[in-house]
Simulated assay, not measured.
Amino acid sequence: MLENKEAVIFDLDGTITDSMWVWADIDRTFFEQRKIPMPPTLNKEIEGMSFTETAEYFIRTFQLPETVEELKDIWNRIALDKYAHETPLKPGAGEILKYLKEHHIKTGIATSNSRLLLDVFLKERDLEPYIDAVTTSCDVNKGKPEPDVYLKTAEKLQVKPEHCLVFEDIPMGILAGKRAGMQVCAIEDDYSIHLTAEKKALADYYITDFRQVLDHTYEDLRK
């Protein structure tokens, strides 16, 4: 999987860290407090959106009084401590980051989440030395499934897209990586377990644990 790869770009939520439960809790509490029925298709509607795009969607759809920045600040304040202390690394994530560093393969993060939450997550786990470039979808014109966030990260890393490998956990993110001209490995996550077949249909590889990349027990979907 890593053959001829000069850079590896990771999504954050559901990929490097088990964190999707945070947003499920935040959404549930948010709607209950405002006495707004939570749409059953909400997750599908906002999948892949940037933090800013999600705030714009909430304000527009639910006629909220907050500005985009005010709403983002509310979410950041609620989630900050959870990203600092409660969202664990996915199995094998630490090992693969160490391996990539030792083998001089560049690393990046391309996330739809906020820069504040990304920064605190990396800092509290001493992961900053292992990451060479970070980009949020708010830094580019469009969120996932558009390729912008992955192309921008590759540009920062000074690596051509065809020499990049992407790790993603949801279909919109996998599509973003593929549209950027990169190979994509889908990773299992409880939040998207019901989308496994769709993820496998889109991706080049599939894993349940990052250690499968290192011991070559990953599922090759190109066959």
Rank of each mutant, 00 (worst) to 15 (best):
T87G: 03
T15Y: 08
I78T: 10
T17V: 15
T52R: 15
N43V: 13
L64H: 10
R77T: 15
T107H: 08
M49W: 00
L117F: 04
T87S: 11
A110V: 07
H104D: 12
E66Y: 12
I26Q: 03
D73W: 08
I74T: 13
F51V: 12
K106L: 04
R28P: 11
M49I: 05
L100M: 05
I26K: 01
M38V: 08
I109Q: 04
W21F: 15
L71G: 08
E32W: 07
Q33I: 05
W75I: 10
E69W: 04
V68P: 05
W75C: 04
R60P: 00
S19R: 08
L64R: 10
G92S: 08
A79C: 15
T61Y: 11
I74P: 07
P39D: 07
K98W: 03
V120C: 05
G92L: 08
K44R: 14
E56N: 12
I105L: 00
D25R: 14
E47W: 03
I36P: 11
A93Q: 01
L122T: 02
L42R: 13
W23N: 02
D13W: 01
G92W: 11
N113P: 02
A24P: 00
L42C: 08
Q33P: 06
E66Q: 15
V120D: 09
T52N: 02
I105H: 04
W23R: 00
T29F: 13
L118M: 15
F31K: 00
T52W: 06
I16T: 10
V68D: 00
K72W: 07
N113D: 04
K98F: 06
W75E: 11
L100S: 04
L117H: 02
Q33K: 14
A55N: 11
I36Q: 06
